[in-house]
Design a protein around this nucleic acid. Sequence first.
DNA 1: TCCGGAATAT
DNA 2: AATATTCCGG
Length: 322
Amino acid sequence: MLAVSPLPNTSKDENQGEMASTFAIDTHEFPDFSDTNLLDSIDFDDLFAGINDSDVLPDLEMDPEILAEFSAGGGDQESEMKASASVEKVEENNFKKEEEDKVSSCGSGAASGSASGSNFSKEEEIVSKREEPVSASLKTLAKDGDKGRSKSSTQTKNNNNNNNQGKRKMKVDWTPELHRRFVQAVEQLGVDKAVPSRILELMGIDCLTRHNIASHLQKYRSHRKHLLAREAEAASWSHRRQMYGGATVPSGGKRDMNPWIAPTMGFPPMTPPMHPPHFRPLHVWGHPSMDQSLMHMWPKPVAHSPPLRGLNHGLLTGTTNR
DNA sequence: TCCGGAATAT
DNA sequence: AATATTCCGG
């Protein structure tokens, strides 16, 4: 029992103008126990599996604060589970009984947490919004790329719309799929012309607000910037070396044309002025294209740009300094 | 007022 | 680190 929900309703959230069209849900999650830890397969998974959203117990995952409040006793996650279980009765409103397959949706379930071992404290985020039909294909495509992912999130409660008012916003879990759509949209628009609203449109995910996109976009740009910067550095670095050797490229261009960097951007020579519908600059970073072990959406700061041409990338240095 | 983007906050 | 929120011009 745990009646949770004292919630003082701050009532400040209320989506201002975000078209709230969050309906649709779809909880088909496929438990991927392929190579996961047993822990993953713990039960809360199942528990959550069916219940996705519903604002009931608005706070289950709130945050530290509230959690702390009643968690004082001790069981943290335990309570969570229980709570969810009880949630079953949740269904009361009209809810949407959508079909349950594809449809963009926001809800989802699947929790996994990294409980592995000893690390659970008060998780908070979660919630993952899933999207549409693409999944299948992506799955295929992403194969090893995504594989293990897609189920990492500890869901808790969702906010729904329907009339509610005191709903909180849950963190959106940018799953590889979502991210992929995001990147796709951005590319289509052109990196510099991409703005949240447009991206949102292109993505077609109904849930997700402009803000979500904006936030992600910010991060995206930031990462990209770093990446480019690094590569540029590396490039210039290699440049010098080349010069030394008497090599080539007289131009003093710092990093305009870099064979290596190019792929990173996806489109060096023509960026903005063209985005045919079905054209697609293969991979940028978060792309499925680059499977391998690069499945980490956001490339960590690992410089990868072989300094000298002629050699196969492979190792690289990590310090580009001078 | 709405939007986009950077700066902050959580 | 990843998201969300807030602040600040257009």
